[in-house]
Amino acid sequence: MWRYTFKRLLQGVITVWFIATATFAAMHLVPGDPLASDKAVSEEIRANLEAKYGLNEPVWKQYTIYLGNLAQGDFGISFTQKNRLVNDIIREHFPVSATLGLLAVLFAGLGGVIWGALTALYRNRLPDIIIMFLVILGISVPSFVVAAFGQLGLVSLNNLAGFNVLPVGGWGTVAHMLVPAMVLGLSTMAYLTRLMRSSMLEIVSSDFVRTAKAKGLPPTRIFTAHQLRNAVLPVITVLGPAIAAITTGGFVVELVFAIPGLGRYFVEAVQQLDYTVIMGTTVFYGAFLVFMVIAVDVIYGFIDPRVRLE
């Protein structure tokens, strides 16, 4: 298991290198001089940047400088904001996105497992039909529409109540996080519910559940010890990609709810063509996702004995 973990981590590092290289390549294929397009850069900053990134050097030299900086965890300096390091920007805004994402993943995971198990148990009966209808809706409605209606709901709620039950936007307290996290987790929850449902249905009709029944176990014990545990496993395997979906989905939610997260910052940076911030954020997100997927796989290995002992 430890060897497996180590192997995965090594693969992860190589993957991050690939992401960094692809990012570098993409940004260097941008037509024109990145500095020339930006009027806000003063002569002073320009000189600094040129020295730091070796912008007058050949591309391969720039690439080695870039990789060297990355290896030291240095993402560079912002183009548009004076004296601001990309590292600072990430340090400041990422925790917000991460908190929001974590809440959303929790919401999506718990909701998905509970609703999925429920629909499987009530298969083809009213609760199943209602929940699956909502799930199909959740999968089919784009995240920004959900976000918009979430905000609309908040406004109407506050109007109805006559005071601010929950803040409509912004960041800071748990009250700020609640609705955005739910909005962000919704489509993933819908997806996980579907997955959990089919997984649960497969388990319900599986041979070992029949064995458990033949043993005369009470239904609650069959549900907890035999069905739930096995049905949750496939849900855990997709948590990695689900985290990725939620993290990038965060862009929209952060925009709509005015949350000072990294996603919103990234969109702003793109609009201002702040190249170092774009590159830094992309590589950072890429690395984060790669290691999240690895973390989920390793955790899965500890839960499923079949993987653990391989």
Binding site: I19, A22, M27, A244, T248, G286, L289
Partner: peptide
């Protein structure tokens, strides 16, 4: 492994 939406933007 490339973060999809970020690279779409890139």
């Amino acid at each position: 492994a490339l973060p999809f939406l970020l690279f779409m933007i890139l």
